[in-house]
């Protein structure tokens, strides 16, 4: 697995009021492989969105380096290629809609790239199919549910032929069903099309689905590993102001009540089997 994202000793400082500086990223080192699915969790203000904005060169490092498929985000000439290969999906589904029909919305990106109309039509068809929204081609995006809107936003990224999706709390505004729709769509694209995924979330149950979890705190990476290693550290995560999936906390409580439950349980099924073999 080659590296797709390489962040080296990166810092980001914002200029806030009256010239005061806010250091949002503090010497970050991250490597994400091609086709990897990485979840990022961390408290409010820990720097997740700032990091995400570096991944498609919406921001450039104050110091250090951010390489996307080997391209330095600092070099102006790489800008278009980086923006095309890394697609972003944000929290508020309503702010991302640009057109009055679903198909126009998905076509917006490739149109801007100057892709020929026939090719655009094919891409739109394919992208909508990939996110399970082909029946909504001619619908008005404003009348869709939040989960459907987010899937249309993802289709927009696919139509750009991006091979990396960066999602910044894509499910924060959604109900449980919408959340499930979005997460399973992302997981499927990751599995079937080998899309590299960076998924920021406050829902620990979603982060469990990733190949790897990165935990941020005050602009630094403070924990990193497969979900099992990260989420079995119940105390450490709670100290950080984070949480663990219900099953992990339940298992932790049972252990405190002196039951013999394996340390690495993070899903309901694992827990139920461990308790009632």
């Amino acid at each position: 697995m080659g590296e797709f994202i390489t962040v080296k000793d990166m810092c980001h400082t914002y200029l806030a009021h009256e010239g005061e500086e806010v250091q949002a990223l503090d010497h970050i080192n991250i490597a994400i492989g091609k086709g990897e699915f990485v979840a990022i969790i961390g408290t409010n203000g820990s720097g997740k969105s700032t990091l995400a904005k570096h991944l498609n060169a919406l921001l450039i490092p104050s110091s250090g380096q951010c390489l996307i498929d080997g391209m330095d985000t600092k070099d102006q000439e790489n800008l278009w290629e980086i923006r095309q290969s890394v697609g972003m999906v944000f929290q508020n589904p309503d702010n991302q809609i640009v057109a009055t029909l679903v198909e126009e919305d998905v076509a917006f990106g490739p149109e801007n790239l100057g892709v020929p109309p026939k090719e655009i039509r094919n891409r739109v068809t394919e992208a909508l199919k990939d996110v399970g929204m082909e029946d909504y081609r001619q619908h008005s995006p404003h009348l869709l549910s939040g989960g459907q809107k987010q899937r249309v936003a993802i289709a927009g990224v696919l139509a750009m032929r991006s091979n990396c999706l960066v999602l910044d709390e894509p499910t924060a505004m959604l109900d449980p069903q919408g959340r499930q729709e979005v997460l399973s769509t992302v997981l499927r694209l990751h599995r079937e099309q080998n899309i590299t995924v960076v998924y920021i979330t406050h829902f620990m149950e979603e982060a469990v689905a990733a190949d790897r979890v990165i935990v941020m705190e005050q602009g630094k990476v403070v924990m990193e590993g497969v979900p099992k290693t990260v989420f079995s550290q119940v105390n450490r995560l709670k100290e950080l102001g984070l949480d663990v999936p219900v099953a992990a906390e339940f298992a932790y409580r049972l252990r405190q009540l002196t039951m013999k439950i394996p340390e690495d349980i993070i899903t309901d099924t694992e827990l139920v089997v461990a308790v009632c073999p």
């Binding site: 099953a247 906390e249 409580r253 049972l254 009540l257 309901d268 827990l271 139920v272 308790v275 009632c276």
Partner: peptide, 28 residues
């Protein structure tokens, strides 16, 4: 949902709890 799964496996528990600590006690 989790408490329902325990019930299906034959545990006799009150699934009408809303906090994990009490739920874990019940299962224990």
């Amino acid at each position: 949902l989790l408490m329902n799964q325990f019930k299906q496996r034959g545990l006799e528990i009150d699934s009408a709890v809303v906090d994990i600590a009490t739920a874990a006690q019940n299962v224990y």
